[in-house]
Design a protein around this nucleic acid. Structure first.
Lengths: 114, 114
DNA sequence: TCTTCATTTGAACATTTGTTCATATGTTAA
DNA sequence: TTAACATATGAACAAATGTTCAAATGAAGA
């Protein structure tokens, strides 16, 4: 990264901070986690799974959405390794697969509730 | 919320979980925080401000983006009360305004780095 | 086998989002 | 006042996103 001295106001501070910035790949991964939780309906699904596993059908009732919409969102959460599933006959049960995500949620919940 | 007994697989579990779900307003606010951090370029700005304040111009250099793009993103972060600013002559310095956000970032950074 | 049910998938659509470009503020120094 | 500079703003655009609808899996029971 080259720093244009003509434009830059405080070259020293810029250099200091540049050193502390994580690499782009890490930033992208962090953003991905936040993005997974950034949609209210997707977040609600995760909240619904916080205490116990549920099948798609039940999640749809809890979240007041169609089975299809829930299934689409669960696929995203599954891809992100935020939820996992297990089959029991016709029914597929989803549950949280990532403890860090649980911590993030509790922290943001505290924030919202002061 | 009424639960259709014909369709619902496990009415008891649904009722249990419905009780634990935060109210919609809280869910929206949680999602908003995550959304603010869900864009890589916006997250990078926050990361740049994690250790010290910077002017728009410097952030643009650090993040390798135009001043305008940075300014637009800073407005979003300001609206969300994630960053604050102070004027010193022509220059406006931005810094983090929310400790919870700092915690969220450290936690997600830990997650990414295992 | 056929039917039913839970879930998944794909395409289509409207909506949201981030960046760019041009222009506008607002501050400082001449 | 003027010029120069830092930042902000608005419109426009392409890209990404969430939901809907219809159709496809895949498992269980008749």
């Amino acid at each position: 990264m080259d720093i244009c001295a003509e434009k830059c106001i405080n070259e020293k501070k810029v250099r200091e901070t540049v050193k502390t910035i994580p690499q782009q790949e890490d930033i992208s991964q962090m953003a991905d986690i936040f993005k997974a939780l950034s949609d209210p309906s997707r977040l609600k699904i995760v909240l619904a799974l916080l205490n116990q596993e549920h099948c798609v059908c039940d999640i749809a009732v809890i979240c007041d959405q169609t089975d299809s919409a829930i299934s689409h969102q669960l696929r995203i959460l599954r891809t992100m390794k935020i939820v996992k599933n297990r089959r029991e006959g016709k029914i597929i049960y989803y549950s949280i697969d990532d403890d860090h995500v649980i911590s993030l949620i509790h922290m943001s919940l505290n924030h919202v509730r002061h």
